[in-house]
Design a protein around this nucleic acid. Structure first.
Lengths: 216, 216
DNA sequence: CCTATTCCGTCGCAATTGCAACAGAAATTA
DNA sequence: TAATTTCTGTTGCAATTGCGACGGAATAGG
């Protein structure tokens, strides 16, 4: 049913049905559903489990020192959130997770991965969990790369190039509305619209809603 | 000798001498020295080992699509670099590592951590390696938090607050010169100097070279 | 089909920033 | 010590961006 989303996740991809069941059991998987807008996790609590999104989209925002909310990531089907805070047993997690749409997700507990359990599936999961974290680090590098660019245009070009690379095509759509994209890029929404229009006028890109085409 | 730097690193902290030796052996540690300015790792190669800085400072810069160099991190004694790229066996690592000062470092190979080796020390290292990656993710969150701020002043306040938190004091010094700090914050150097002066005039901070004091 | 709501682009203006040129301080080297 | 190089702060100006207000398009709900 939700098999698709699970398979997309590097923790489970390529496992056969039995292995998958064992893996879910080893992680004490619990399914839960949230309505659009619901708060999935409150900042300030400890994150005992991390989340794997089965369907829908969640937003992870960081509550900073002044109480402002900064969009850290949005997780779609197959994506996870909260692994680091969970693994490190951070007492007061500084992130809030909310449902952008109706959401179904699995809560997973990495407790067994920390133990000396030598079952094959547990060892495999340990390795995969590690790979997942490593991949997350690299994807955050990409975010930093974008945010470091001096102008909105360069941020957009970098962002769009990254997407084009990931999709292997110069035509693609992104899972953000303008407001969310602006926050992801760290810029003002209307300034973003202005720049998108300018880039289209300059013949650099074409776009319709969330679909983009890089002309270059 | 360099024991201090090693102990600062979460992979080795708290291990006794024997364990430490075993750990270094398990990671096939090799010591190497570089002169100031030397290139420690070239972008485009595969990173078979990750680095642990024993003394000195290295800079990790990201080479983006246009060939620009973006400062991703600077690693001091006890810090590591390249774990993610190494673990994921990325064929063409997109980072360049250079020596900001004369540098001594250990090259470490995580190969054994990927195996089914069940020796206690290896299991321990696996867990610690994981924690290290998780911690890196969180510290990158802090960087993103800074870069997401709309103005130089807010970036600085966020950056300085993070440092004050880490040191547990409102007086501290940072390991960056102005040029490097500007690149870390993603802003223009002279604009940074201008804003620092303005903040001092406004009674928010005091600073002398790389020493800062938050007055608030 | 109509209405309310959300989403998106445009515009003018003020504020912030990048940039280039420059000068003095500090550190390094001869 | 003198000379050279590096680092840092200042300033004027142009370019970019943030912000608020607005209107039209798209969407959702009845």
């Amino acid at each position: 049913m939700m098999k698709g989303a699970i398979e997309k996740n590097p923790l489970f991809s390529g496992l056969d049905d039995n292995e998958c069941e064992d893996a879910l059991a080893a992680l004490s998987a619990i399914k839960q559903e949230y309505a659009k807008g619901a708060v999935i996790f409150h900042a300030g609590e400890r994150m005992y489990r991390f989340g794997l999104v089965l369907c829908g989209t969640v937003q992870v925002s960081f509550t900073d020192i002044d109480g402002n909310e900064i969009l850290m990531a949005s997780a779609d089907a197959g994506d996870t959130f909260g692994e680091s805070l969970c693994w490190l047993k951070v007492a007061e997690a500084p992130v809030t997770v909310t449902a952008s749409t109706d959401v179904t997700l699995l809560w997973l507990t990495p407790e067994l991965l920390m133990s000396g359990d030598t079952r094959k599936i547990v060892q495999e999961l340990r390795n995969r969990f590690l790979s997942m974290l490593a991949a997350k680090t690299l994807s955050m590098n990409e975010r930093v790369q974008i945010l470091s660019k001096p102008t909105i245009r360069l941020k957009l070009i970098t962002f769009l190039s990254q997407y084009a690379n990931r999709y292997g095509s110069k035509t693609f759509s992104v899972p953000y509305d303008r407001e969310t994209l602006a926050r992801y890029l760290g810029v003002n929404r209307t300034a973003l619209s202005r720049e998108l229009s300018a880039m289209q006028a300059d013949g650099i890109i074409e776009f319709y809603k969330n679909s983009f085409k890089i002309l270059k």
